[in-house]
């Protein structure tokens, strides 16, 4: 079958989509800065998030209208099930605006990957993900240092409680590595790689299906449409992944902040 299929290939070979599909030309340039599509998407996402909440709050009432109810649900989701449940206490209130911004900013940018006319995940550009992860790293460390002092915070993060001091030489570097060094890297890579891989997968199914129908006789007429059906199914999977990645990023931010504020390990 493979031999048969390859025998019927008529034209040029199929080029699988690679990292090059993420290198978009600038839409326009400001000075020497080429403004690309993902950069515009960042701005549009911010406008959408703020516009949504602003409209939801425009006619603020004790008995909410439909839009206000939706806004309260969205805000309350991050406020209650992320900030309050994880950070808890009286401290969580301070971090609600930050966590709400993180969640909805990332969520809208991720959903752009499955939105017609955008169809590009903003955080498949590594720099964007690095930016937010680096910011998370600065914030949770700053929160911890402000509460415990520099040395106190280092001790909190690196010296596990309830372990005999004999184990310190082994455990302290490990804890430092996992709590201070690795966290921003995993935060950034998790988000970036999921968006990157999801987009490549969709492009592969779409262009591959087209190639099968155009250039492969016989089986191509069956496999091509099948690839597109799969592309649709994968799109739904991707929407789930887009939501989950936004949620996980926010959740981990909350957990890192909680860990930095904790009194005991």
């Amino acid at each position: 079958m493979i031999i048969e299929a390859s025998a019927t290939v008529r034209a040029e070979e199929f080029h699988a989509p690679g990292p090059a599909i993420f290198e978009l030309p600038p839409v326009f340039e400001i000075g020497s800065l080429g403004v690309t599509k993902p950069m515009l998407q960042l701005v549009i996402a911010a406008v959408i998030v703020f516009a949504f909440f602003h409209l939801a709050l425009r006619r603020r009432a004790l008995v909410p209208g439909r839009l206000q109810f939706a806004g309260e649900g969205a805000y309350g989701f991050v406020r209650n099930s992320v900030a309050r449940d994880i950070i808890g206490g009286h401290d969580f209130q301070k971090f609600v605006p930050y966590l709400v911004t993180v969640f909805f900013f990332i969520l809208v940018n991720n959903l752009f990957a499955s939105t017609p006319f955008f169809q590009f995940p903003t955080f498949s550009r590594a720099g964007m993900a690095y930016g937010l992860a680096g910011m998370s790293w600065v914030i949770y460390n700053a929160v911890g240092i402000r509460k415990h002092g520099f040395l106190g915070y280092l001790k909190l993060q690196c010296v596990p409680a309830g372990v005999s001091p004999a184990m310190y030489p082994l455990l302290v570097p490990l804890e430092f590595f996992s709590n201070i060094l690795v966290r921003p890297v995993t935060l950034a890579l998790r988000l970036f790689c999921n968006m990157f891989a999801g987009h490549i997968l969709l492009v592969l199914f779409a262009t591959g299906g087209l190639y099968l129908m155009q250039h492969v006789d016989g089986i191509g007429y069956v496999a091509g449409p099948l690839a597109w059906v799969l592309a649709i199914l994968v799109s739904f999977l991707e929407i789930l992944v887009q939501f989950l990645q936004a949620y996980v990023f926010t959740l981990l931010n909350a957990m890192y902040i909680q860990g930095a504020l904790a009194d005991e390990h």
Binding site: P19, F53, V100
Partner: peptide, 30 residues
């Protein structure tokens, strides 16, 4: 093709700037 893991500094900068603006808007108005 350049390695997709290597970031462009403009993207880091713009993501932080846009995030910061959105954060302050939400903190102040929402």
């Amino acid at each position: 093709e350049h390695n997709p893991l290597i970031p462009l500094w403009e993207e880091i900068a713009i993501s932080l700037v846009v995030f910061a603006i959105l954060f302050f808007a939400i903190k102040k108005f929402v």
